[in-house]
Amino acid sequence: MSGAADLVIETTGLTKRLGGRSVLNGIDLAVPRGSVFGFLGPNGSGKTTTIRILLGLASATSGDVRVLGESIPRALQQVLPRVGALVEGPGFYPFLSGTANLLRLDAADRYVSPSTRRQRVDTALERVGLSQAAGKKVGRYSLGMKQRLGIANALLTHRDLIVLDEPTNGLDPQGTREVRHLVRSLTEEGTTVFVSSHLLTEVEQICSHAAVLSAGSLVAQGSLEELRRAGEPRLRVVTPDLPQTHTVLRRLGTTPDDDGASPGAHIITAPLPDGVTPDRIVRELVEAGVRVNGFSVDQAGLEDLFVALTGEGFDVVQ
């Protein structure tokens, strides 16, 4: 269904080695036009390295990269004017005001009209809620304000693709929500948004598609629906009769997890066994004399999938 023309970002076998160590091992990214694409992975998994290569800041050791249909880095100068980006935190001159910083970056772009420069800068600042602080020196901005200014820079002119690397870093809950609104309004304008994050909830809330990176390899990719489907469904029984329930579930071919105990009732969860419908499970339980106070079948959350794919804990995967 999605031909190459519909892909805004397409990499094939993208590999990056740094000092003999492999940072990216053959990434095949496919970002459809018009999507909000979440690029997930724990710290150190290679998200920023991938983004740097997409934007021509770093070179790939091997592999093919296409952004907006053009080959990177060959067509970089033609592609970049159509791409707005916030990469690895904002970068601004502390001795210039927010407005002056944006004017400077806009002046470096040879493809935009200088006559609308001032107006575009003001609009971008207003969009991220920085109009009030526009004249203040960036050195006196808070982390969150710098982050907003970084996003404003990505919005200086109409873009076909916006890349936001950890956009909510340093933002308060209010700012995080504003970023979500912003991303939504960008999509309505027809811009594809590529968001990298180590925060799953963030991606789950705003993205239509996602890819999961772990230790330099892409372990999952697709629409959010597809990814959710990839996780196995789980059943959940609330009952005071613990041993009988276990017996029945084992007979049906599934292994119950440890219980979440609660007074007077047990909550038992287990993977939904293959080829057994939920109604049959309930019937079997009731026929075995189990008092079923509650029963549900849940799709695995993306979080379970994320943890399953990337491992749990704080260790940076090497």
């Binding site: 934007l55 021509g56 800041l57 970089l76 100068q77 970049l80 004017p81 791409v83 980006a85 990469v87 690895e88 935190g89 904002p90 970068g91 601004f92 001159y93 502390p94 970056l105 806009d106 470096a108 772009d109 820079n153």
Partner: peptide, 14 residues
């Protein structure tokens, strides 16, 4: 060191 180099390059400046 100010992080502005990457943004200049992405502006883009060859």
């Amino acid at each position: 060191s100010t992080g502005t180099l990457r943004y200049l390059l992405m502006s883009p400046v060859a």
